[in-house]
Amino acid sequence: MAGEESTDRIPEALTEEQAGRMLSAMNEVIRAGEEMRKLRAEMIKVLVGFGWTQDRIARLTDMSQPAVSKQVAKYRAGDPPPPVTLSLDQRDIPWLEGRLWGLAEEISETFYDTARCTRYVNAIARGRKRFTPENVDELRRLVEEDLRTHQPELPSGYRAAYDEISRALDLPSGATTTASASVRRALAHQIQRDRLRDGA
């Protein structure tokens, strides 16, 4: 009887739905990792354009010297890339998306438990959310809601940055650089965060 009871409790094989959910989560991690490797390679190209040494790039990317040399040689095979403009006031969509992402991340870290944008920011970081027009609109809505909710505790620069980003997203212009959209997003994200922390 005991043997029969234990046999009854053995679960059947995974259902297709269960396997799909499990593999989907794995695929997200793998895809995010591949995208980060590609972004890192593109960032090396940007750093080469700034004239950085291979030693410096290797140290910052935590890559071996030969691996960096291989990347640098690939980019130096053709014309050197023009340096990327780092001015915050640029109006192409990837740059503005990066600024919005940086602003949302600052709000999320400041009010982690109560910020409406926290889940969205975490999903972006894990590669579960892409920068589609619909997702950007949703992130804008969440950031605007957080700015209203936490207005007394936030520096005025947060609202000013959002207003500037939002107006520019409504009337964007084309990019003036050859850098990829993901590189421009990553650069704008970091520069926006640094600017907010500096209180500018």
Rank of each mutant, 00 (worst) to 15 (best):
143 V>K: 03
143 V>H: 02
136 V>D: 00
122 N>C: 01
122 N>L: 12
161 A>G: 00
156 S>P: 04
124 I>N: 00
140 R>F: 00
149 T>A: 11
128 R>V: 01
146 D>H: 08
154 L>A: 07
147 L>K: 06
161 A>H: 04
116 R>T: 07
134 E>Y: 02
136 V>P: 04
120 Y>V: 11
117 C>I: 02
163 D>C: 02
154 L>W: 12
157 G>H: 10
121 V>G: 06
150 H>Q: 04
164 E>P: 00
149 T>M: 14
121 V>H: 06
117 C>V: 02
146 D>K: 11
132 T>N: 06
123 A>V: 03
130 R>A: 14
163 D>G: 01
141 R>K: 14
144 E>F: 09
150 H>C: 00
141 R>T: 14
136 V>F: 00
138 E>C: 03
145 E>P: 03
152 P>R: 13
131 F>H: 12
141 R>N: 10
139 L>E: 03
128 R>F: 04
129 K>R: 14
126 R>I: 03
157 G>M: 10
162 Y>C: 07
120 Y>K: 13
152 P>W: 10
150 H>E: 00
119 R>P: 02
114 T>Q: 14
139 L>C: 02
147 L>H: 13
130 R>P: 03
118 T>Q: 09
153 E>K: 12
144 E>Y: 10
152 P>Y: 10
144 E>S: 12
154 L>R: 11
139 L>H: 00
127 G>V: 11
135 N>V: 00
161 A>C: 04
157 G>A: 05
157 G>W: 04
129 K>H: 10
153 E>T: 06
164 E>R: 09
123 A>R: 09
143 V>D: 04
121 V>K: 09
117 C>D: 01
151 Q>W: 08
130 R>Y: 10
132 T>F: 01
118 T>P: 11
116 R>K: 09
162 Y>L: 14
138 E>R: 15
155 P>A: 03
127 G>H: 08
115 A>Y: 04
